[in-house]
Each structure stands twice: as C-alpha cells, then as structure tokens.
Design a protein around this nucleic acid. Structure first.
Length: 417
RNA sequence: GGUGGGGUACCGAAGUGGCCAACCGGGGCAGACUGUAAAUCUGUUGGCUAACGCCUUCGAUGGUUCGAAUCCAUCCCCCACCA
C-alpha cells in the first residue's frame, strides 16, 4: 500500500469502461491508506457454469491489480442466485442446482480463479449465507427500496418492454439480490463486465438506502470470443477455458481473427500495449505496425507469441513452447500430434483380423454413428496410417499402434489390447 | 377472467393431407485454400444399410384416412393484448 494514490488510480482505471466515479475511488483510496485498511473489492461469480474462461480473466486481472496494491477481494459465489438462475439475456429458467452440485462447482471455480487471484488476499463467500434464510417479509422490505422506474432504466428491460417481450419478476429481483450482496459484504468497490453495470449500480443505490457509503463501480470490456464478434461465453461455445490443455488453448487462440490480437493481449494479459506486445496490433497483413516501430514480423508469428504468452500464464513456459511446436507440426506440416488417445479394439471384435472403416471410426470414438463415419469417409477426411480411405466398405487389417485420423484435429491410436 | 398468437430437427424459421427426414438462415462437421482451428468457396448435418430400402422424428395422447408435421378431439406448455 505504498504506491502513491495517483499511480494507484492510473493502474486501477486502466482498461476500464465505466468508472463511477474516479473521484470517489480516489477518496476511498485515500481514506483506506490513511486508516491502513484495505478496500473491499467485490466480484460476483455464477456457480452454475463453473468453467472460468478468458472472458472472466479480464475481470480477475483487475481484481489482482487491486490485490497487488494491498486490497482485499471479496469473491462472492452466487449459489443462491444460481438456484434461481440468471435470467439475463432471456435464457430459459435454469434448473435449480443441487447443494452437492453447487459445492462441487464452487470448488472447481476456486481452483481456477486462484490461477489469477492471490489466495491470501481473497475472501470467498456464498450469498446463500444471507439470502437463504431471509423471510418473505425481509424480501418485501428489500424490494420496496427499488422502484419499477429504476428497473426500467436498464437498457435491456426498456427494450424488451417496448418490444413486448416478457420480463419475469425474478429478473427484477436478480439485481436486487446482487445489490444486497454489496450491502452485506460492505463492498467499497465492485468490479464486473459492462453487462453488469446496471446490477452494480443497483448495489450502489441499495447501499445508500442502507446508510452505507456506495461502492465504486468499475466495468471492464467484454472480451470477444473466438468468432471475434460475440462476447466470449460458455453457452456460445466460443471460449477458451483456463483449465484447458495447453494445446487446446494454443489452438484456440491461433484461431482468433488477427484484429483481435491486440485486445487479447491487453485484456487477457492485463497489460497495456508495452514493447513486447506492441507488435500485436490489429494491423493489416504484412505491413509495419506502428510508425517508427521496426517490426517486420509476420502476423502469424505475432499471434504465435500471443498464444504462447497466454498459455504460459496458465501452464508455464515449457508447456507453451511445446504447444506451439505441436501446433506447427499438426497444422502447418500436417503431421501427427505427438500425443493422442489410445483406443483398444480387441482382436475378438475383428473379423479375420480386419475391421470395416466405419466400424473402426465409431469404435475409435472419431464418429458418433456409422452415418457420420460414412460422411467423413466420403468427404475425404479419413486416414489410416498414411493412407487416405475413400471406400466406405473397406475392410482393414489394422497393424498394432496404427493412427486413425478423421479431419484435421481428431486422431486415435489403435491397439488390440 | 376474456381475446388473439404459438409449440417443427442444436438454434432461428418455412411447411397446413401424399412430391417431407422435412425449404432456408445460423451453428456444427468435412474438403479446398491459407500463416491460422481466421476469412472465402464447396459439400455435409436423424438412425440402420455396400446399395435398393427400412425405421424413428414435427408439444402429448387418442382418432379420421389407403396415407398426417399437416384434418378432428382431449390434454400439457409458452407468449402478447384487454381486464
């Protein structure tokens, strides 16, 4: 906590989209420093989808910056809210999670979160601690503090209301609960994605209403997913999970559009374009990046570096180098990966020691059905060893340890026992 | 409570008696191309079958018919509007 306030402010405000408000944050930082008391920085997490991906990392990075300046992160696992399901974005009501499932998810969550956060400066709590035992009366009194007009101020509600789409009452309750969380943990600051701005502002109102000093609200950009357009999310399947294998992570990052490289560098690596990353700018192909910066590197190489840096962050440098080499081998040189699943197909399942290709693909887990296998073969996606198979009726004697390939990325090694 | 509109494959959405395993778009998968698992183009996208063909699917159940996603009945669910 020895960093000068101005410097702290700069660090904390970096990359933020909304900051309500800088003046308040400054004041809080000053008071905290004077009292030698860390700020309580709230972050809410949804336990129904326990996979942390790079989109979450954007927020976690910010939290880590708070921690590095000596502040405390209050990590709230919304187990109670998880039970009703976040209605944001018009998703159907989620199935309530069982207690066991929540506990399990919470653990997974924490394992992943502490790849970024500093465990020593983190408080973890569950909002069921204060929500589960509220009486209906409590709930009424709480909701009396918020008006419909306040709710309709939210863009999303406004729009849906005008378009005559349904808005469930729970959707109104949801921000009230998350806001109440802020009251309960006495948050000084709350960090979240821009989509959480409304909810976090409700937190401010509620805190005021409870006679507390309102939290500072800081939003961060939503990271685009692999498609480069929509935000990264599990349900869209365009995400990179922090628990994914190095090669998976590497490959996925290699697939992002070039224009997104700088954004990933800034948001995921949590640093502004410094020298090392300056070259990772969304510049046109094969053109020098910034004026005065000598960088003739090919975008592909820049992306490789980005992918390696990200992989290294979660798996260490050695894994990053290996993943890069592997990618090069499989996709640039079209060779086999050095690791692949091994599938046992006993001789008993073969006829005269041979097996039909379709059966082989299904048995190897490379096709879901014979029909899928047939299509793969007909489309020229299948190789056994070095031989491309185009005849769907082919009966093959499969030498021990043969490699079967279906498409660019799916491989299996076949053994008989 | 009343009125009206709906429930179709992973999603969106056509189809209103046989030509429907079901147009089209998205997504997925594959091929070509590529620095790339990007973009683009092409193909493909229920199951069984070498194939002919067969089987299961259009909210649920029952019925009409030679024949139904399409008609009838009952039921379940969703949405909007007016109270």
């Amino acid at each position: 906590m020895n960093t000068p306030i101005d410097r702290q402010l700069d660090i904390l405000a970096a990359r933020s989209v909304d900051l309500v408000s800088r003046a308040e944050l400054r004041r809080k930082l000053e008071t905290a420093a004077a009292a030698k008391r860390p700020l309580r920085v709230k972050y809410g997490a949804d336990p129904s989808a326990p996979d942390i991906h790079l989109g979450h990392v954007v927020g976690l990075n910010k939290l880590r910056e708070f921690q590095d300046l000596g502040h405390t992160v209050v990590f709230i696992i919304g187990d109670f809210t998880g039970m009703i399901g976040d209605p944001t974005g018009r998703s159907e009501t989620r199935k309530p999670l069982s207690r066991d499932k929540i506990a399990e998810n919470a653990k997974t969550y924490q394992d992943q979160v502490f790849k970024v956060l500093d465990r020593a400066h983190t408080e973890v709590c569950f909002n069921s601690e204060w929500c589960a035992n509220m009486t209906f009366e409590n709930v009424l009194k709480l909701s009396a503090r918020v008006t419909v007009a306040q709710m309709l101020a939210r863009d999303d509600f406004q729009k849906r209301f005008q378009e005559k789409q349904s808005i469930s009452i729970v959707e109104f309750i949801y921000p009230i609960i998350t806001g109440y969380d802020s009251v309960m943990v006495e948050a000084d600051v709350e960090v979240g994605g821009t989509d959480q701005l409304f909810n976090m502002l409700v937190g401010r109102d509620l805190q005021k209403s409870f006679g507390l000093e309102p939290q500072v609200v800081l939003t961060l950009p939503l990271l685009e997913g692999l498609d480069g357009v929509r935000k990264m999310s599990k349900s869209l399947g365009n995400y990179v999970g922090v628990n994914e294998s190095p090669r998976e992570m590497f490959g996925k990052i290699m697939s992002i559009p070039d224009a997104l490289m700088e954004r990933y560098a800034a948001l995921v690596l949590g640093r502004p374009a410094c020298n090392a990353m300056r070259s990772i700018a969304g510049r046109p192909e094969k053109e020098p990046s910034l004026p005065g910066v000598k960088d003739e590197r090919h975008p592909r190489q820049v992306k490789d570096e980005l992918a390696q840096t990200i992989v290294a962050r979660f798996h260490g440098p050695a894994a990053a180098v290996a993943a890069s080499a592997e990618f090069e081998r499989v996709f640039s040189e079209h060779k086999q990966p050095d690791e692949m699943p091994t599938v046992v197909i006993p001789m008993a399942q073969r006829k005269d020691g041979k097996l039909g290709v379709m059966a082989l693909l299904v048995a190897a887990g490379l096709a879901e059905s014979n029909g899928a296998a047939r299509r793969l073969i007909q489309q020229g996606a299948v190789k056994v060893g070095e031989t491309k198979i185009t005849d769907i009726t082919a009966e093959l004697a499969i030498p021990e340890g043969s490699v079967v390939q279906a498409g660019k990325r799916a491989f299996a090694r076949i053994v008989s026992a």
